[in-house]
């Protein structure tokens, strides 16, 4: 894809604003928490964008904000799952189309993950009626490795060095 883009972190956030999966690909281990914060704070901007344009037909929300050394981009699926990526900030232009392509790939990875039939089996008994959680949360849990593997592959395809960090 785009050679200039360096993916630092990917976050999937459930429609209830709970983190589903947060993967960081940067080298510094101590900055993992930073990306958790970035994922959390970008919800503010996503809310803002969605509220400003309630008839949103486009999933891609564009550049949410730039802070310190990362540019944060957002994406919201039709089922209100939010995807946030943090790209390393460099003094070069970023094409929205390229970012959108990354998002599309991540979205497909998410689709593939929640299409896991065993997930549905598990989720049917996990449904607690006072705090409904879709099984998007499940997809990101430690138990299901396929999802994180796909996300990591996307990151690798972008040309990022593989560094797996622990998360959640």
């Amino acid at each position: 894809m785009a050679p200039g883009l360096r993916l630092n972190a990917v976050a999937f956030i459930s429609p209830q604003n709970e983190p589903t999966l947060i993967r960081t690909f940067s080298k510094q281990d101590e900055s993992a928490i930073k990306y958790h914060y970035i994922a959390h704070t970008s919800l503010d901007v996503i809310d803002e964008r969605v509220a400003a344009n309630s008839k949103l037909s486009e999933c891609y929300l564009g550049l949410l904000y730039a802070m310190e050394d990362v540019a944060v981009y957002g994406y919201i699926t039709p089922s209100k799952v939010k995807i946030v990526i943090a790209l390393a900030l460099s003094d070069s232009v970023v094409r929205d189309i390229e970012v959108n392509m990354i998002f599309k790939a991540l979205h497909m990875a998410y689709y593939a993950a929640i299409s896991n039939p065993f997930l549905a089996l598990r989720a049917s008994t996990d449904f607690v009626h006072d705090s409904p959680r879709s099984y998007s949360l499940l997809a990101g849990s430690q138990k299901w490795k396929n999802f994180r593997r796909r996300v990591d592959e996307i990151s690798r395809d972008l040309g990022n060095p593989m560094t797996t960090n622990q998360d959640r």
Binding site: L63, Y65, A66, E68, A71, L87, S90, S92, V93, D96
Partner: peptide, 25 residues
Amino acid sequence: AIRSLIINPNHLLQHPGFYYYMAAR
């Protein structure tokens, strides 16, 4: 048309809070 679709995130103008934050950092 493409030019309007690209942006250098580095050149994004944000509200002053971001820059105060950077100053603090």
